[in-house]
Nucleic acid binder design. Structure first.
Length: 267
DNA sequence: TAGGCCATCTGGTCCT
DNA sequence: AGGACCAGATGGCCTA
């Protein structure tokens, strides 16, 4: 409703909105739709209650009916306005919080960010996020499957797992115990949630020196308490030395598809 | 200029 | 009772 208030600052969302609303509110009644006129039965009830309270407080019996009505109407209008402004402010804040959350979601989505890039619409953000989650889930499953295939189950703790390498492992001596694989994180263990954020920046970059370990604020990141993985440095263990399985290209293509979808959504 | 997207207002409903 | 949540309505801005 209230065409003038929205016309004044449909995008501004300024803190002065309510004040502007108050000032301009009564000037263009011809523009208001019927929602304003039909102040609603609830509000009329509130109005009735409030005005009766105020009148009983003032107890002005010498006032005529006209002035009584005038006071009653004036006060109730103000009360309604105050109530309305309060509710509107809450709703604005709620929507702003929602938009902040939406921005946070956009930040982690795989599409180009920047001042020159138009940001994803809300619906596009949600759709892309869904697809992205699905893609990551399937990628994770695929990687689990590949690891299982490659090591046939006897390397159950993976080369950096908490169990450590078997005694026969040619690379790591028995005392070198790794806690978490830097790329797969704890995703190989059944119950621990994977640290997806660490692997988001580029699944296709899997091989060279655990570059995925690089996080904006953490330079060389030692992993585990045995052999240490360092961001940017090659890992000497067998898995990291091996050429990437051909299936990994599927992960890259998945990512490419997601990014392509993002571009489509931004059109 | 039409259509998409958005911010805001509003009333209703549900929950605490 | 008050707040949160939701959906509908409205109008502004922007782009193809």
């Amino acid at each position: 409703m209230n065409s003038d208030s929205s016309s004044m600052s449909s995008r501004a969302s300024s803190p002065d909105m309510d004040e502007m609303y108050l000032r301009g509110h009564h000037h263009h009644h011809h523009l208001h739709d019927n929602r304003m006129n039909s102040v609603s039965s609830t509000q009329n009830d509130i109005l009735q209650k409030m005005s009766e309270e105020v009148l009983s407080r003032h107890g002005s019996k010498e006032d005529g009916d006209a002035s009584k009505y005038k006071i009653k109407k004036q006060l109730s209008d103000q009360d309604i306005q105050q109530l309305r402004l309060k509710i509107n402010g809450r709703e604005r804040k709620r929507m702003h919080d929602l938009n902040l959350a939406m921005d946070g979601l956009r930040e982690v989505m795989p599409y180009a960010h920047g001042p020159s890039v138009r940001k994803l619409s809300k619906i596009a953000t949600l759709l892309l996020a869904r697809n992205y989650i699905l893609m990551l889930t399937s990628s994770l499953e695929e990687m689990k499957r590949l690891v299982g295939e490659i090591y046939g189950g006897h390397h159950s703790a993976f080369h950096c797992g908490t169990v450590g390498h078997p005694a026969t492992h040619p690379v790591h001596p028995p005392h070198t115990v790794h806690q978490v694989h830097p790329i797969l994180g704890s995703s190989l263990s059944a119950n621990a949630p994977p640290s997806l954020s660490a692997s988001l920046p580029g699944i296709g970059n899997l091989r060279p020196g655990h570059s995925l370990l690089k996080t904006p604020s953490t330079p060389p990141l030692p992993i585990g308490n045995g052999f240490q993985h360092w961001a940017g440095l090659p890992c000497p263990c067998t898995i990291c030395q091996m050429p990437p399985p051909p299936q990994l290209s599927a992960l890259t293509s998945n990512m490419s598809r997601i990014v392509a979808e993002a571009k489509d959504l931004m059109k």
